[in-house]
Design a protein around this nucleic acid. Structure first.
Lengths: 102, 102
DNA sequence: TAACTGTATGTGTTAATGCTCATATGTGTG
DNA sequence: CACACATATGAGCATTAACACATACAGTTA
């Protein structure tokens, strides 16, 4: 037996999160949001993606609670509500980097 | 600007990993391998998946270097070559659990 | 209110991927 | 060698998900 066992539900929940992070454009949006709030228009120009596509990905992230929208006038700013996610991403990035050298 | 910036390549590499982890059955195989080496037949009976399907997922994991095959007689044992990955999964699992309470 | 900017959503198309069936390959044993 | 068991692979099918287009909605300003 392994030390950490994973129930079916836990695995399913994990995979749901990973599915969100698995799309390059979506992940790019998420990673480069950092801890700042940015209007959609900024994200569009930063990524070079179409408005529709950015909106599409933001919706997925929003419905999963990974980003939070905030209206300011006619703009909608998006923020990461949780720093911990970024730290997980950072650790994973480092892991990949180390692994390549082996 | 965010503290940690992610290049296009880094994001792409990250997303490639997440894509592998995004499939529930594949993730289930990976999580419950733990740090032990197990023959494919064990994985088949543990997951209840078809032989073909298990082989299919193991191939994906193997080609990404997330598991390592090892022949022992007529059996092929699969192992995780790296503990760190399990720890990342564990942390992610905990993060999800905490988040739900908020 | 009309006109403009910023953002969201519904629909359809296309590409990717998980799964199964049939079959091949590999390994031990009589 | 023949046979049985363990695992891998190729082809085809079915589902899903990313994207674009057109359009709707929300807020600001004239």
């Amino acid at each position: 037996m392994s030390i950490n066992t994973y129930s079916y539900d836990e695995v399913k929940e994990l995979s749901r999160l990973f599915k969100l992070l698995a799309e390059p454009n979506r992940l790019h949006i998420l990673c480069n949001l950092g801890m700042e709030c940015r209007p959609v228009s900024d994200i569009i120009s930063a990524t070079g993606l179409s408005q529709t596509n950015v909106s599409f990905h933001l919706r997925a992230l929003r419905e999963a609670g990974l980003v939070r929208p905030e209206r300011r006038g006619s703009f909608v700013y998006y923020c990461l509500p949780d720093v911990k996610l970024l730290s997980l991403l950072e650790q994973t990035k480092e892991w990949i980097k180390l692994r390549r050298k082996t």
